[in-house]
Design a protein around this nucleic acid. Structure first.
Lengths: 181, 181
DNA sequence: ACATCGAGCGTACGGACGTACACATCGCCC
DNA sequence: GGGCGATGTGTACGTCCGTACGCTCGATGT
């Protein structure tokens, strides 16, 4: 029989399907049924593995945040000196985060949830704490904080503003912020 | 008779009710019925005044963006010199935007829509263009751009990060970004 | 070989949703 | 004053939703 009984990755597959779906149609557009179809699991599996949509979303965004955060940390770890660190920050802004529509959308969906519900804020807190810690390998705490905010803002504006950015803008921004006086 | 026939503000009331509702339960949680109940209009009015939820949301967020943008512009217009402008930017970050949970949530809801659907990106574009123009009363274009991004990032981090900000952080950030070398 | 048990599934139910459309009510013009 | 477009409303329909729950069937121990 081709029954699928015993399939230990099922739970993971559901989470991944959920993330994909959120990226496509937004939190507003997901339903147990759509996720189930996308993950190719029976509807009943949804309530079996997750207490409700909220639990599923929290796990999905937890995974997402961890993934992005890992990339961030790697970039910063690979930088060996101050200029390298600056370059890494520029790369994060212009390549990593701007790169895929998917990550952009998911990030905003998460922020939106976090803005309203404290449960999700735990995820954003952890994420930001990791970013700051990674930056503090190379910069003093106050600068790390500013840099983190700057990364956020530049990323958003690059994504949500069709106006072409002036070349060198990002590099210049990083230089200013990382230059105390 | 207490019939409500002729009530020219009805359309506006619906839009306001929609914004309130979005702030409370998110775009994911709004429905024609809930908006109608909140605005105290019959369900039929919804489809009568708006072609669909999308049209309503676009109008609602258009109004919201314009309102916030007006405040921003006023702040910048009232500043008379460079230091005044810097102080105005600090005030925007620490008072205006961080002030109310409602505005925070609505901003993110809008960004989320804009991240996925180009139709909403027109709104964010216009908003950002106005911000930049207002900043350019006092700063050169490149700096205005950076400042705008910085405002964005600092606001978000203040809102989504429970870690208490170091005092003077914002002031220092604005000083660094507005000091070319 | 087979009994048992619990993990996992399919289905069916009640409710909320958006929308279409027939109808009520109004302002206006004669 | 009374008929008639235009404006606005109530309702009913089909769709899709989440979840509860009884049943199936594979794994395991003997």
């Amino acid at each position: 029989m081709t029954t699928r009984r015993y399939d230990p990755d099922r739970r993971d597959r559901i989470i991944d399907a959920c993330l994909d779906l959120v990226a496509e149609v937004g939190v507003a557009g997901v339903s147990h049924r759509k996720v189930a179809a996308r993950a190719d699991v029976p509807l009943g599996s949804m309530t079996y593995h997750f207490a409700g949509m909220d639990e599923l979303l929290r796990e999905a965004f937890g995974r997402f945040a961890r993934t992005v955060s890992d990339g961030f940390e790697r970039r910063m770890r690979e930088a060996t000196d101050l200029d390298g660190a600056r370059a890494a920050v520029v790369a994060i802004i212009t390549e990593d985060l701007f790169g895929t529509q998917r990550d952009l959308v998911l990030t905003h969906e998460l922020y939106t949830l976090a803005a309203r519900e404290p449960a999700y804020r735990a995820l954003t807190n952890a994420w930001m704490a990791r970013s700051r810690a990674a930056l503090e390998r190379h910069f003093d705490p106050a600068t790390a904080r500013l840099l983190d905010a700057l990364i956020e803002g530049l990323t958003i504006h690059r994504a949500l503003d069709t106006e072409a950015p002036l070349p060198g803008t990002v590099t210049e921004a990083v230089r200013r912020v990382t230059t105390p006086r």
